[in-house]
Amino acid sequence: MKYEIFINGGFANIPKQYNGEISLESSEKKELFQTLKVKPEASGEIHDGFIYHVKIIEEGQEIRSVYDEHNLPSVIRTFIDTVLSKGN
């Protein structure tokens, strides 16, 4: 499964881009797709918060969403942490 993660904003405003491929269990993959399909709830104005752009591509299907600090689902945060911990 291909992914593109772009994190910008933040106090320092140093954008970070992570592109690559990752293997996930089918249950994890399903949960990730389902979570990305849900429109994030609107947050109040967060100042200096990160903005997380997440896109995944699997078998021609592409899905993406944008989150902030308060509406980033734990499933997506865990996925981002997994990608970062792999040093991608």
Partner: peptide
């Protein structure tokens, strides 16, 4: 967070 490189104001409090 873990290794979190940021600080922010969320409308109510600082983090």
């Amino acid at each position: 967070g873990k290794d979190y490189n940021n600080a922010f104001w969320d409308g109510d409090e600082m983090t």
